[in-house]
């Protein structure tokens, strides 16, 4: 398959629309959460205002590692978003492999870790260390589930998995326990409570973000929105059958993000050791049971 310049433009379009979508959706969620707390809440486009305000501000620098890491993080995440299959838009056909996401996502995260460490603030280093520790926690149960899925379906292409689900039922029905584990791991990936140990504003002064202000913080906010878009899309594609058209995909996307936010808003924060112990107790057990049911007994396949 040849990749033309049009493909790249469409892929950039996917990344940009993903950013705009996620920024709007999180704004709507801020509003509805405010209503749940009997407040009025901000305008739905408040997150856009925040980002543009930050890009308007003057920036300081803590050295070239600090600046370069931010650009690397943003570029890595935009690169990941370009591969994301959205409904029937699959830009780079044959390259939308699950492992491409795993590796490309790490580029963005490492960029951010590098930049945060480059700022020289000890709280940033603690935040980065906690983020990586938490990653060790949620990656294992998530990988167990996804590898079992890939084993029974005999493909690791996201769009192929979506096609199988469109034909023979969503993975939510085929592997309900696995979907629950996937959702718990998604909460960890998004850094939603109770898994927001590495941000922890009252404890670590927002962790890796402690030294960021102005343009760099604006770029990191854009990066955060696109990363959320990629993670939620991955969950929708893997467990909820993607979407046969854009509207279906958007509805599923909205439901998953809103649910994650609502769950996050009624819970407190775990300590970092509690996060890892939690992931290594309940989700990993459920994941192993589900993998056994799928791989050994072939239930639901």
């Amino acid at each position: 398959m040849t990749i033309t310049i049009t493909d790249f433009l469409v892929a950039f379009g996917v990344a940009f629309c993903g950013w705009a979508l996620q920024t709007s959706v999180s704004g709507i969620t801020r509003k509805t959460v405010a209503r749940m707390q009997k407040r009025y809440g901000p305008k739905w486009y408040q997150n856009f205002r925040d980002i543009f305000k930050l890009l308007n501000k003057r920036a300081i620098t803590h050295g070239w590692v600090y600046d370069f890491g931010v650009i690397m993080a943003l570029a890595g995440i935009i690169g990941t978003a370009m591969f994301t299959p959205v409904a029937n838009i699959v830009v780079f056909k044959g390259y939308d492999n699950f492992f491409v996401f795993v590796y490309l996502f790490a580029v963005g995260m490492l960029g951010m870790a590098m930049s945060a460490s480059g700022s020289g603030n000890p709280l940033a280093s603690i935040g980065v260390m906690r983020a990586l520790t938490q990653m060790v926690g949620y990656e294992v149960p998530f990988m167990v589930i996804v590898l079992a899925l890939i084993h029974v379906r005999d493909t690791s292409s996201i769009s192929a998995l979506v096609d199988i689900q469109q034909a023979s039922g969503w993975n939510l029905v085929v592997m309900p326990i696995g979907t629950i584990v996937g959702f718990i791991c998604l909460m960890g990936m998004l850094g939603k409570k109770p898994f927001d140990t590495y941000i922890a504003p009252a404890e670590l002064a927002s962790g890796p973000m402690v030294e960021y202000g102005g343009k760099q913080l604006g770029m990191l906010m854009i990066m955060h929105e696109i990363a959320t878009f990629v993670e939620i899309s991955l969950f929708v594609n893997l467990f909820l059958g993607g979407g046969s058209n854009i509207l279906e995909f958007l509805v599923k996307y909205f439901i998953v993000y809103t649910l994650a936010s609502y769950v996050s808003n009624v819970l407190g924060r775990f300590k970092i050791d509690q996060v890892v112990t939690f992931y290594y107790k309940i989700p990993i057990l459920l994941a192993l049971i589900q993998a056994g049911m799928l791989v050994i007994f072939g239930w639901g396949v």
Binding site: A34, G41, P42, Q46, A205, M209, V210
Partner: peptide, 22 residues
């Protein structure tokens, strides 16, 4: 800041560090 007067409807919110604040 909280439900009674709700500062967030003006787009305001608390921040953790001086670098992020306006």
């Amino acid at each position: 800041m909280t439900s009674r007067y709700d500062m967030e409807r003006l787009g305001m919110g608390p921040m953790a560090t001086p670098r992020q604040a306006d």
